[in-house]
Amino acid sequence: MKCSDAKRLCCGHLDGELSCAEDEALQEHLRECPACAAQAEQLGACVELLHGLPDVEPGPGFYECVREKIRAAEAGELQVMPETLGGRARVRAWLDGLRLRPAMAAGLWLLLGIVLGGGVAHLAGNSSGEAPATEPAPLAVEAPGGDDVGGDAMAQAGVRSPFWDLELDEPGSRSDTNRFESEFLLEPYVQDRQGGLVPAGMDYQRGVAGDRDAQDDVYPVF
């Protein structure tokens, strides 16, 4: 077994998710590889630490407060925001908001008109001879089985992210996370599949367009 395979299987081992054969192979590797054994021990300690976090108790009177909120909601005294009610309810709430705020609604319609007017003008410009630019194909797509392949595709495309590097490093040779951070910041351009240089952020967005794992990844990494 390779060290990278052992690293991948360690979490499954801690969660009891491995088959007997996988578990035995992992144990055999850990007996032979002190670096992986040390990493596995620290990973186990980390999980133990997380499991040991004390529970927070809600305190007395919890149910009575819930009942009071239900009463207030049913009496119309408490407004429950439709955050988890699905798209249709959200649209309805949005439309309600527009009805209640005529000035805001008028402003939004005006803005919409400007945007649409600009779009029509742009199309008219394109139809007079210029071919529309085609969208570049995404560099990574999610595997049918749900495997998280964004990291590999990003690595191939030259995009650096601390997480992918954490995964790819061999035990004992992992470099400091800060180094990857600064490298990412110092390399504003990356090479795409066609060999051209594109801004790192733009390529990041393009490269992971088909990856579910990265669609909501608008947050900075570390």
Partner: peptide, 28 residues
């Protein structure tokens, strides 16, 4: 999210946490 994504995210999250908590984990 699919099962494969759950597994990979757990793996990466624990690896990153292990690095961040290394000082106290080593002591422990």
């Amino acid at each position: 999210i699919p099962g494969g994504t759950v597994r990979s995210r757990i793996n990466r999250a624990r690896t990153a946490l292990k690095e961040m908590l290394a000082p106290i984990l080593r002591r422990r």
